[in-house]
Amino acid sequence: MSRVGKMPVAVPQGVDVAISADKITVKGANGTLVRDLNPLVTIKNEAGKLSFVPVDDTAAADAMSGTMRALVANMVHGVAKSFEKKLTLVGVGFRAQAQGQKLNLQIGFSHPVVKEMPEGVKVATPTQTEIVISGADRQRVGQIASEVRAFRPPEPYKGKGIRYADERVILKETKKK
């Protein structure tokens, strides 16, 4: 059995988990997440701990038990505490401004770039050069952060662009005469 799949997921106070025939629903303070269940994995809720058991002894069922455990653990963490990605703008005149569910970026183009945030994802700008994207769904938060970064990824000569807060950009040496 998968090592990850063997570990139970603890359900914290204030989080409700409902398991139906083909879906699992996790409700908490930060929203509700729903995921389809895989037929190769059985989920049991025993006194606030979720356990994931493969249906048979195949390698696919074993691997899927670990995958489902990780996905459900992320759902439980997301509705309880929320996920967060931090981005930093590096460059002269680069600015970000959050207005409700929109993110306005001035990143060196002749026009401002506006990114609309989907349902369940919040954006904040503590300073003009910092962006904080947060939400309950880990995959969606990471995808939105990746899309914002893709507007102006860091270039390798000066390092200007949008980067993750913990990202290190390795600068290339310029051409010599």
Rank of each mutant, 00 (worst) to 15 (best):
F94E: 05
G66Q: 01
G159R: 10
S134V: 08
A18D: 14
A59S: 14
P118E: 11
T88W: 00
D57Y: 08
N74M: 06
L103Y: 11
K44R: 14
E116I: 03
V55I: 09
G78D: 02
A124G: 10
G135Q: 07
F109A: 12
G66F: 03
G14D: 15
F52V: 07
K115W: 00
P12M: 13
A10F: 10
A136P: 05
L40Q: 14
D57E: 12
A63W: 09
M7N: 12
E46T: 15
V4C: 03
R149Q: 13
A61P: 08
G120W: 01
I24P: 14
T127A: 14
S51I: 10
P8N: 08
N38I: 07
I144L: 09
A47I: 01
N30I: 04
F52L: 06
P12K: 11
R138F: 15
Q139D: 15
F151W: 00
D137E: 12
V11P: 05
I131C: 06
V113M: 04
V123P: 01
A29K: 13
P112C: 08
V141Y: 03
R35T: 06
K102C: 02
T129E: 11
H111E: 15
K86P: 02
T25Y: 00
K86N: 10
A21L: 00
V41D: 06
A98K: 02
L103Q: 02
P118F: 12
V141L: 04
V90I: 13
V90L: 02
S146L: 13
R69C: 12
S110Q: 11
L37A: 10
K86W: 00
R149M: 13
H111N: 14
G91Q: 08
T67G: 07
G100R: 09
V141T: 06
T42P: 02
G66E: 09
K122V: 09
M68H: 01
I144K: 04
A21R: 09
E167A: 10
V114W: 00
V34N: 05
A21I: 01
G135Y: 01
V79G: 13
A96R: 07
G159Q: 03
K23S: 11
D62C: 03
K49I: 04
M1P: 01
R140M: 15
H77C: 10
P126V: 12
D62V: 03
P153G: 01
D166W: 08
G120D: 07
V11D: 14
Q97I: 06
G31W: 10
V113D: 02
A145L: 05
A61D: 04
G100M: 05
P112V: 13
G91A: 08
P154F: 13
G48F: 03
V123W: 03
N38W: 02
R149L: 14
A80D: 15
G108K: 02
N38Q: 07
V11T: 07
K86A: 11
A136F: 00
S51K: 11
A165C: 00
H111G: 07
K49A: 15
G120R: 01
V92Q: 09
M68K: 00
V34Y: 02
R69M: 10
A63K: 12
V15W: 12
Y157C: 03
